[in-house]
């Protein structure tokens, strides 16, 4: 079977033979492609990037991401959980928004303290 590696912008077209742990991967420009093919077949995972509501008028949404990838099947449930969250303090990039989020942390990906509030 064929699949596109999504690890980097090269987007290698991988040609995969076999199944389970015993697979042969052709077409990967780097070892990450082989790793990706193995995970993708057994336990596909994605990083979730989205935004969380805040209480601040000058920045109504805070961009966030999962610190690690989460199971692909959990993406829509994760979005449901996101809708229940509200950020109430001004965070820095890398700060936790939610400590326990589908097996990892949800972290801020932007700084909220540098908004040019005073024109």
């Amino acid at each position: 079977m064929e699949m596109v590696c999504i690890v980097c912008p090269n987007g290698c077209l991988l040609d995969i033979e076999g199944s389970g742990d015993d697979i042969k991967v052709k077409g990967a420009l780097c070892p990450k492609g082989i790793e990706f093919a193995k995970t993708e077949l057994q336990d596909p995972r994605r990083a979730l990037t989205t935004t969380v509501a805040t209480v601040f008028g000058d920045m109504p949404r805070l961009p966030v991401r999962t610190a690690d990838e989460i199971p692909k099947a959990d993406l829509l449930d994760a979005m449901k959980k996101i809708k229940t969250l509200t950020v109430k303090e001004r965070l820095h990039e890398g700060d936790s928004v939610c400590e326990d989020f589908f097996g990892t942390r949800l972290i801020a990906t932007a700084d909220m303290t540098r908004q040019n509030i005073n024109l």
Binding site: P9, T49, R65
Partner: peptide, 19 residues
């Protein structure tokens, strides 16, 4: 650009656009 995939060339990391 809240999605990730930025910075692989310069930082060898997968950052979001905001990061």
């Amino acid at each position: 650009c809240i999605h990730d995939g930025f910075g692989l060339v310069l930082f060898k990391e997968r950052l979001t656009g905001t990061q």
